[in-house]
Simulated assay, not measured.
Amino acid sequence: MKTLYGIQYLRAVAALAVVLFHAAERSGEHFAIGAAGVDVFFVVSGFIMIVISEDRHLTPRGFLKDRLLRIAPSYWIVTSIMVLGSLAGLFPNLVLDPVHLIASYLFIPVASPSTGEMWPILVQGWTLNYEMFFYLVFAASLLLARPLRIAALALVFGTLVLVGQFAAPTGSIMDFYTRPIVLEFIAGAVIGRLWLAGHAPHPDTGLMLIAFAILSFAAIYLLQFNFNTWLCAPLAICLVSGMLAVEKGGALPRIPALSYIGDASYSIYLWHTLAISVVVKAGMIAGLPTAAIVWVGALLGTLLGIVCYEGVERPLHHLIKHRRIVFRIPGRRAAD
C-alpha cells in the first residue's frame, strides 16, 4: 500500500491525544476529549483494511495470521510486564484472576476484577479487543465477492448495534460488542471504498472538514461536554475524509517527524502508561505542579513508546518476517 501521509499524521495525532488523555487522567486533570483519538484510530483501521485488501488475494486465514503477527507480540510483552509487575508488588491496584488473565491474552473482553470494567490487564488493550473482533468479521467477509463485503460488514455491525440498543445486558460481552463504536470501522471501510473508486471531496472541502472537526473537538473540550461515540464518530469521519481529500489534491505538506510518530503510534499506544505511572508517582512525591506532571508524563510516555518501537516492535517484525521467509522457501537463503 502506498504511504498515505494524511493517514500517518492522523495516527500520530490520535496516539498523542490518547497519551495526553491518560497523563491528565492519572494526574487528576481533565482532558477527556483526548480519548477521541480512539475514534480516529477505528475509522482509520476500517479504511486501511479495505485499501490493503484491494490488490491482494487475501484468504481469511492469511489475513488473520498477518494481523495477529502485527498486533499480538508487542501487546503480549506489555501485558506480561504488567503481570510480572503486579506479582512483584509494583501495581498494588491490579488484581490478577486466572480467567481474566487468559482472556486478556486472547483478546476476549471479560470484566476486570480490579475495576469491574470490561478492560484487560493492560487497560488500553480494550480497543484491541474491538480490533480483533473487526478482523474476524472482516476475514469472513473475504469469502464474499468484493462488491458485497462492505454491505455484509454493515449488516453484521448494524445488527449488533441494534441488539445493543434494545437487548444487550450492561456489563456483558454482548454489551461490549454491540456498542455504537463498532460502526466507526464501517465508516472507515466506506471511506476506503470511495477512495479506491477515486471519489474524494475537493481539497478545499477537505480543509473545511478538517477545520470543522478540529473546532468541534475543541468546543467539546472547552465546554466540557460528555463526549460519546455519536458525537465524536462524525467528527473523526470528517477528519479522515478531509485529510484524504487534501492529500489527493496534492496540498498536504510532508512532515517527517509526524510521519515517524505515525509509524510508532502502536508502540506509543501500548507502552505510554508505564512511563506515565512512574512520572505521576514521582511528581506527586516531589510536589511538582499538576500541569508539569501531565506534560512530563505525556512526553516521557511518548518517548518510551518510540524507544520500544525501535527496540521491540521493529526487531520483532523483522524477526517474524525473516523466519516466515525461511519457512516458505526451505533450502534457500533468506536474502533470496
Rank of each mutant, 00 (worst) to 15 (best):
C238A: 15
A236I: 15
V246P: 11
A251F: 06
A236L: 12
I255T: 11
I237V: 15
G249F: 02
S277E: 07
K248W: 00
A251R: 15
I268S: 03
V278P: 05
A251L: 14
L252Q: 03
L270Q: 07
V279T: 06
Y260P: 11
L239W: 02
D263R: 14
P256N: 04
S265Q: 00
A251G: 13
M243D: 03
V246R: 09
Y266N: 06
G250F: 07
V246M: 13
L270R: 05
S259D: 10
D263L: 14
V240Q: 06
I255K: 06
Y260I: 06
K281D: 14
K248V: 12
E247V: 01
K281F: 05
V240G: 07
W271Y: 13
C238S: 15
E247L: 00
V280R: 07
P253T: 05
C238D: 12
D263M: 07
Y266P: 04
L274S: 10
V279G: 01
A257F: 13
I276N: 07
S277R: 08
S241R: 11
K281G: 03
V246Y: 04
G262A: 00
Y266L: 01
Y260Q: 12
C238I: 11
T273M: 13
G242D: 03
V246F: 04
L239E: 04
I237Q: 09
I268G: 00
L274K: 11
A233S: 15
A251C: 11
I261P: 06
P256L: 05
Y266D: 01
K281E: 14
L252H: 04
P256G: 07
A282E: 13
T273A: 14
V246D: 07
T273K: 10
A245Y: 02
Y269I: 02
G250L: 10
G262C: 01
V240Y: 03
A251W: 11
A245S: 04
I255M: 13
G249H: 00
V279E: 03
S241T: 15
A251P: 06
R254K: 13
Y269P: 01
G249K: 00
L274Q: 12
I261F: 10
A251V: 09
A275G: 14
A282L: 14
R254I: 12
G262P: 01
L274D: 09
A233R: 08
K248C: 08
L270Y: 11
S267L: 05
I276A: 09
S241E: 10
G250S: 06
S259N: 08
L274V: 13
Y260E: 13
D263Y: 13
V278E: 07
L235E: 00
V246T: 09
L252P: 08
P253D: 06
W271G: 02
Y260L: 15
T273G: 09
L235N: 00
L239I: 03
P234H: 14
L258V: 12
P253V: 08
D263G: 08
S267Q: 03
I261N: 10
L258F: 11
L252I: 03
M243E: 01
V280P: 00
Y269S: 02
I255S: 08
V278W: 12
M243S: 15
G262M: 00
S241D: 05
S241L: 15
G249R: 02
P253I: 04
A264P: 01
Y260W: 13
P256E: 02
A275P: 10
P253F: 08
V278S: 12
S277D: 10
M243K: 01
A257E: 04
S277W: 06
R254Y: 14
I268H: 04
K281Y: 05
